[in-house]
Computed example of a mutant assay.
Amino acid sequence: MNSMNMHRDIISDWQAQHERLFGQHAIKLRHRLAETGLFTRESVGKLIERCPQSHFGLESVSFDGETPKRIYGELGNATGLEAIEAIEKGRMWMNIRRVMDWAPEYNDLLNKIFSEFEARMDGLKTFKRNIGVLISSPNAKVPYHADIQGQSLWQISGVKRVFIYPRSDVFMSSKSIEKILLRETNEDMPYRAWFDDYATTFDLQPGEMLTWPLYAPHKVENHDCLNISVTMEHWTKPIWNSYAVHYGNGVLRRTLGLQNTSTSDHGLHVYPKAASALLWKKMGRQIDGDVVKTRDFRIAPENADGRVSVR
């Protein structure tokens, strides 16, 4: 990261009320990630080439049928800049995962950002921080889904519309959350068109970031332009407690048939449910790794849509 920018705050418009809103409501803030030099087109191209295969994801969506379906691709022999060029042509998005594990300069940036957050919010302690980079096509769409940890989306170039839905059982039931945590499904969940009537929408511009409540369902639609974005994840003790409770509820529902179990992230019930979760994992009952994915296409910058089918 450019040393001359190390002493400037990454978040440029933090206000006192954001401490109370963080993690409870959707918040849009301004950031200075572009000033670091880590997210230019050339820098991102080099990052693609450095990325270990195990941390590389390339996806699209098939809208055949009533329910959108994710399909998966591979880089092939394309360079990083060729891959970006191909993504600019086709409806795809590339996910460069866990960048902090193999690119030290991005780890330094991640630590700086969360140090800022912790300095601004009394009692906030984060762990298992994660940073990734997303490159996505004009008009690309990410289906309705939810995440299991604290999330934020940082826009570098292009514009995307983000739909944030209310955090209630109407839009994401506790049983749906359990299925995600137990890896019985991927993060995509049942969606109805009328959900949009109740969503809060944000058009995320370069230099803006967005964060939202835990488990809040959301979907993303790019404007008609290439998008480069950064995703960040974090855990806190309350987030871990919520994970343990929902996971433990899922285990108890599947083993003992218990229903109507509490989803509160505090209280004595957290600890036996956490123990149930750990025991379930040790018994090998959780599906290992991601939900199985097949490779459907390969990057092909010479083609009109930037890809070629491999099936």
Rank of each mutant, 00 (worst) to 15 (best):
E19A: 15
K273R: 15
P217F: 07
Q259R: 15
P238E: 05
S242R: 14
A26W: 03
A300R: 13
D305M: 08
L38H: 06
I135C: 13
Y191F: 15
M6N: 12
H18T: 11
D147I: 05
D122A: 14
R30Y: 01
L204F: 02
F56S: 06
P238Y: 02
L226W: 01
K237R: 11
G57W: 00
R98S: 15
A146F: 13
L21D: 14
H223T: 05
Q151F: 10
P190D: 08
G248I: 10
L210I: 14
T231Q: 06
D147Q: 06
I239P: 01
G257V: 09
R50V: 00
I11K: 02
S62A: 11
K128A: 14
P166E: 12
E19F: 04
C225E: 13
L75R: 15
A146Y: 11
G37H: 07
W280L: 08
N130I: 08
G158C: 06
E49N: 03
C225Q: 13
S276C: 15
V99Y: 00
K69R: 15
I27M: 11
R120S: 07
K237V: 15
E49Y: 02
G23E: 09
E19P: 00
L214G: 01
T40P: 00
N5W: 10
P166T: 10
T40F: 04
T236I: 07
N222D: 03
G90I: 12
S62P: 07
I96Q: 00
V251R: 02
I156E: 11
I27A: 04
M172K: 06
A34R: 10
H31Q: 09
H269Y: 03
E221P: 00
G150H: 01
W154M: 13
K89E: 01
E105H: 06
N186F: 04
T185C: 12
W212G: 03
D101G: 02
Q17K: 14
L256K: 09
S60R: 13
D265R: 14
A140I: 03
F22M: 11
S43Y: 01
M283N: 06
A34T: 07
D101H: 12
Y243R: 02
H246L: 14
T261M: 15
A216K: 00
R254C: 04
I287L: 11
M189A: 09
E49Q: 10
Q151Y: 06
L214Y: 08
R32Y: 01
D169P: 04
I87A: 08
A16C: 01
V142F: 11
D305S: 11
S176D: 10
L33T: 09
I96L: 15
T67A: 08
D64H: 11
T67E: 12
I180W: 03
L204M: 06
S168E: 11
I299A: 04
A216M: 03
D108C: 03
R41C: 09
D101I: 02
T236H: 04
R183H: 13
E233K: 00
I164W: 04
G123T: 10
T36I: 08
D296Q: 13
S12W: 01
Q15A: 13
S136H: 06
M1H: 08
L134S: 05
L153H: 13
I84R: 06
